[in-house]
Write a protein that binds this DNA or RNA. Structure first.
Lengths: 157, 157
DNA sequence: TTAATATTGTTGACATATCAATAATTGTAT
DNA sequence: ATACAATTATTGATATGTCAACAATATTAA
């Protein structure tokens, strides 16, 4: 849903904050759509792609627990359980029970999962570059700085 | 899910576009969370709130069709069917069949729905102002301008 | 050591979103 | 007038997300 999108409310008289908030939501959805479309032919969704990427890059050779993946992606453990159920069924990851902590599972990316990621990665980067290049380098820099400031303020508020 | 969030990828050496894209997603989720929390005591979610606002502001006195609401919020008609099922059950809206076009429904906000919105609105505005005020007016203006530019570029690309 | 507490993962109930298929109706073109 | 196309709403299947309750296991404190 295009949350909070202009309800026909007056913007333009200094109400930049409202417009910016609606804009964030709109841009999020646009970006999301672009990335979803790109991933579709690989039978991947953003969620699955992100989980695979996290396992690959944060898990190293020793694997990673489900809770760690959830924390990295800021998602609930229950969500992770079910995403991994699917990825496991699709043979993109291995789920091994941890003998040192019998509550936990060790998640590793499979050969197949690794190959899939390798095939997706260059195109994914290209999509991000294409989206980024719609602003000039200077604009990107300014935008990014304000975005990071805003994020840190919201977080600490 | 905090999509695309740093996979441990090098940012900072001119890769503002990547950081900005991850940032958009992160900020979207933060804003969403703030608004969800604010709406919770009213037993409203962002989706329901947005639908009610759209009916109120785009529907006027003659009401609005389901398709029109979907288009305004950039959401599928099937999603709208089910959201309205709930809002109708909660007696926040009326769904009247249109005698001039027997395919369509006329959606109107109920007395109860109107009162609820009236009670939520000032606080909602306050949340947006609080979030906005984490940047200075000048920063908001700059950020908003770049955001709008980016959005229009993505749309026309 | 035992008892209380915290962590890990799962399940069930729910919310919001998509797509594809369908029924009913309306609009258009011949 | 009839056939074809478009629009409106609904349903079923599925994806991704939350929260709350739970079982199993680990950790910490007494």
């Amino acid at each position: 849903m295009d949350y909070f999108r202009s309800f026909g409310i007056e913007v333009g008289q200094g109400k930049y904050h409202e417009e910016a908030i609606y804009g964030i939501v709109l841009l999020y959805n646009l970006i999301n759509g672009e990335i979803s479309s790109f991933l579709k032919p690989y039978e991947l969704t953003p969620a699955k792609f992100n989980v695979l990427m996290t396992i690959k890059h944060q898990g190293g050779s020793s694997g990673i627990s489900q809770v760690e993946i959830s924390k990295h992606l800021i998602v609930t453990p229950s969500n992770m359980t079910r995403l991994l159920d699917k990825l496991e069924k699709e043979k993109l990851v291995h789920r091994i029970s941890n003998k040192n902590d019998r509550r936990a599972n060790i998640i590793k990316i499979s050969e197949r999962g690794g190959r899939l990621l390798d095939s997706v990665w260059p195109g994914y980067q290209k999509v991000l570059r294409r989206l980024g290049s719609l602003l000039t380098k200077a604009e990107q820099k300014t935008f990014d700085a304000l975005l990071m400031k805003w994020i840190s303020e919201v977080k600490s508020a």
